[in-house]
């Protein structure tokens, strides 16, 4: 475990000493500030005017859906692009700089490399999500509402981010070109949602059911609605493990390939 901690620590501090993370945090904060204040304002306008409420969807009158879900959806959108950008330096850039040779000739296993880099990546994603939650915590100082459904939604978004992290890390392991790794990462992350959307294009009941079960949309929606199912957690962990396993295999195979 010491090796995992050593690499984790180095990567984690590396993120916080790179301008990339601060640029991302800046962009995220600007967007959060604009959308959150607009969301709160629209919600307040809706509640203060009975005329608006008449034709409104019940979910629009619930602060969890009307404000916080929109706010956290933005986190999800940012994760799609931020995660590959953060992950590209973890393996692709190491390969490009040849510092990867140091890891491969150190007494550590490929699993330790993957695990430490993966943990550092999801810790940074967690830090970005904390930024989003600051707004929600401050909102609670002003209004009375139940925080638990929002926290559950936040957990769901974080788990989706953890899935992005595993896919982006895998993308990063495939190439020694950080830009290519970034693009592959985005394609995989977007592919996850496109795959989930395929359920709407089929009328076949069995296919529909299968796609729904193996897409993140369904499992995330359950958490947004406040339903915490063990199967959802198992599903997320399975995808994460699958891509981390692929990543480990790619790293291990570099010994056999003609690099």
């Amino acid at each position: 475990m010491r090796s995992v901690w050593i690499i984790f620590k180095k990567e984690f501090l590396g993120f916080f000493s790179s301008p990339l993370f601060f640029l991302m945090a800046f962009v995220a904060t600007v967007l959060f500030s604009i959308t959150f204040s607009m969301g709160i304002q629209n919600f307040a306008t809706l509640l203060s005017n009975g005329m608006y409420q008449m034709g409104a969807n019940p979910q629009q009158l619930n602060i969890h859906y009307a404000v916080f879900l929109q706010h956290l959806s933005l986190v999800n959108l940012l994760f799609i692009f931020f995660t590959p950008a953060l992950a590209m330096r973890l393996l692709a850039e190491e390969k490009k700089n040849r510092s990867f040779d140091l890891l491969m000739t150190s007494p550590i296993t490929s699993w330790q490399i993957v695990l430490s880099k993966y943990l550092s990546l999801i810790t940074v994603l967690f830090a970005i999500e904390i930024l989003a939650f600051i707004y929600i915590f401050f909102a609670q100082q002003m209004f009375q509402f139940d925080l638990l459904p929002t926290i559950l939604t936040g957990t769901g978004i974080f788990l989706v981010g953890a899935v992005y992290a595993s896919m982006s890390l895998f993308a990063s392991s495939l190439t020694d070109n950080p830009m290519v790794a970034f693009i592959i990462g985005i394609v995989l992350n977007l592919g996850l949602w496109i795959f989930g959307g395929l359920a709407d294009f089929t009328d076949h009941v069995a296919y529909k059911k299968i796609i729904e079960q193996i897409s993140v949309n369904q499992h995330l929606q359950l958490m947004i609605d406040g339903i915490f199912k063990t199967s959802s957690i198992v599903f997320f962990i399975s995808i994460i493990f699958f891509f981390c396993f692929l990543c480990e295999r790619v790293i291990e195979s570099s010994r056999w390939r003609s690099t």
């Binding site: 010491r2 090796s3 050593i6 690499i7 180095k10 590396g14 000493s17 790179s18 700089n97 040849r98 510092s99 990867f100 040779d101 140091l102 890891l103 000739t105 150190s106 007494p107 550590i108």
Partner: peptide, 26 residues
């Protein structure tokens, strides 16, 4: 092992880099 291209982390200081390698080598 010193490969043909030294495996350096360019954004680290010399001392921190060597500390990191020492820890990696257990």
């Amino acid at each position: 092992y010193l490969p043909e291209n030294p495996p350096l982390y360019l954004d680290m200081t010399v001392e921190n880099y060597l500390k990191y390698v020492t820890e990696l080598k257990k």
